[in-house]
Design a binder for these strands. Structure first.
Lengths: 341, 341
DNA sequence: GTGAAAGCGCTAACAG
DNA sequence: CTGTTAGCGCTTTCAC
């Protein structure tokens, strides 16, 4: 059998409680008692039993991270950032993949697991506005992403409208006037697609440029292949295009593929920009200009909030947005414009 | 306070043990007793306390997955596959990122965490052959990848030598004779780089083609930027090249970028192939030919083995290899050869 | 500052 | 087929 706290207590000539105190950083202790305990811990290679600790204390130091998919580079980068931030705080991250299915997203909130987690980070795709009330689960939950408007929980996301507006403005300021959008969702308003499209519209309004609705490409999913297919369809339709805004990087990269295959030069003929600033976008040819939504900051903020909730902070829900940046690269800047940007 | 098993027992007019039996699928029970219990569980919205269950049974149903990084698409796809396979088995996956540091890899094996996991899947990068003995931790461990030769634990990996040989043979059979390799590691033999390079050499030997050692590009890391830099260096050195074998997809894609920037046509001037078959490689331009090592199968196999270990199976270590396939795409097949392949 | 007692919620072992 | 007893290893509560 494994070595227990009792064994350590005996070895250090103290009670179990003192061992517990020493390990949990209880401040009011004689330094040499603490040292004696820690020595014994070392000597016996004692490792506390987490199950027992959790059972007694009601805390597991495990948080759940629920997201659609790790094959999607954005979510993989988010998961990476969350895991790094959690580790720094001594929290363990358990992953649940929802595959973008509403039922799975709800299961995470109400299923067996939620009981074992101290907190939950949920990036939902299928939940919508009306599901708000369902979010009030047993577990402190921080929502990531943009599918529920004004959720009754904490919410950390990126400034989708502002960032898309800034990016569109960047294109307009380069003289682009026929900017296609790839990735809009039919009838969506509050989701990432709807918000980013709104930013695109605002920028046009501010610049006094009319939008040709034929430039807006609707898709179901945000995969690379959808970017290629939609770009193909737009080009085939015969509308004039001098720039493309992929509502995420994958769509933009897919669109780039379609354009290049047809012999367009980027950015001279058509500028291409994206949203996410994935690691891979730095290495496309040409390198992709993209909105950097600050995933690391998002992860960090979400965990800070969650940690406070776990400790029992009971204030009103936080709704936080990260700071974005434009990562301007080759795909959107003509050589002759480069110096003026 | 939450509803406990005792509450359910009272509501169903049985003992706690009977509730436990009903929930754990104990076979020898009167069906209607079971039903009465399950009804009560439903009615009271009872959720078992995992900590208590773990404490008593010594099992947590949580496994650890330790890998370097999720920003790396290969590991992200692996993590996805593992998580899906684990969920099917009712296991929860907790992620640890080792960042490719030896100390972190060892911490995972011997640190606090290993005690709370029922099993561990470890894809090490920094551990080497001599670390074999250190793998004998407290926790059933299945090693993934190729950094420890004949580890004393279970080991699931891909047939690196055979797959690289087959891929090289594919290039040779297209008439390529000056095949550069990108991604070799100085003095490495048992790691993925060493094994894949060995496959490359074997194929040449079998075909009676001499290898120009100047064609072998050494790198430290396997990132896209390393592929670009190494390709640049090779081209600058002036050696003739009619094909490039990236020892992983990222290197191949990076090399493609370098070639295209210099105006080479792929595959006509230079064929490019990779190893991993990432989702993104299907959408490069041209689409990348790559070894598909079968990550899903690897995840599935690793979990099957781990599950048996958790139950206590104590046979000799398994050393398993997945089945690979060549995903032949545009980047390696000339239009005029296409029909003959 | 430290110790003793109690018990978190569950399941193993056995009794019936 | 079901109930009883005991105790997993820890932390909480309270005494000293």
């Amino acid at each position: 059998m494994a070595v227990t706290m009792k064994d350590v207590a005996k070895a250090a000539n103290v009670s179990a409680k003192t061992v517990s105190n020493a390990l949990n950083g209880y401040p009011f202790m004689k330094p040499d008692t603490r040292q004696r305990v820690l020595d014994a811990v070392e000597r016996l290679a004692y490792v506390p039993n987490q199950s027992a600790r959790s059972l007694r204390s009601g805390r597991s130091r495990v948080i759940g991270l629920a997201l659609p998919d790790l094959r999607n580079a954005y979510f993989a980068e988010l998961a990476d950032a969350v895991t790094v931030a959690a580790e720094r705080r001594g929290l363990t991250v358990a992953i649940s993949l929802t595959k973008g299915e509403r039922q799975r997203e709800l299961d995470v909130l109400h299923g067996q697991h939620s009981a074992t987690y101290d907190g939950l980070l949920l990036n939902a795709l299928a939940l919508c506005d009306e599901d708000g009330p369902l979010l009030a689960g047993r577990v402190p939950t921080v929502l990531l992403g943009d599918h529920v408007l004004n959720p009754p929980t904490d919410h950390v996301t990126m400034p989708n409208v502002e960032a898309a507006r800034a990016m569109t403005h960047h294109l307009l300021s380069q003289g682009r006037r026929r900017i296609a959008v790839i990735g809009a969702h039919e009838d969506e308003v509050v989701g990432s697609a709807g918000l980013r499209l709104e930013g695109y519209r605002q920028a046009h309004r501010e610049a006094g440029v009319d939008i040709d609705e034929r430039l807006i490409g609707y898709v179901k999913r945000w995969h690379r292949s959808d970017g290629t297919a939609t770009m193909d369809a737009l080009l085939d339709s015969g509308v004039l295009i001098d720039a493309v805004f992929g509502l995420n990087d994958m769509l933009a990269l897919g669109a780039m593929r379609s354009l290049q295959r047809r012999g367009f030069t980027i950015p001279e003929d058509v500028a291409v920009v994206g949203f996410d600033n994935l690691e891979e976008s730095r290495y496309s040819l040409p390198a992709l200009t993209a909105v950097d939504p600050g995933v690391v900051e998002i992860a960090e903020t979400a965990l800070s909030i969650l940690e406070r909730r776990i400790v029992g902070d009971d204030c009103a829900p936080h709704h936080v947005q990260s700071a974005f940046e434009l990562a301007v690269r080759e795909s959107s800047v003509n050589a002759d414009n480069a110096l003026t940007t």
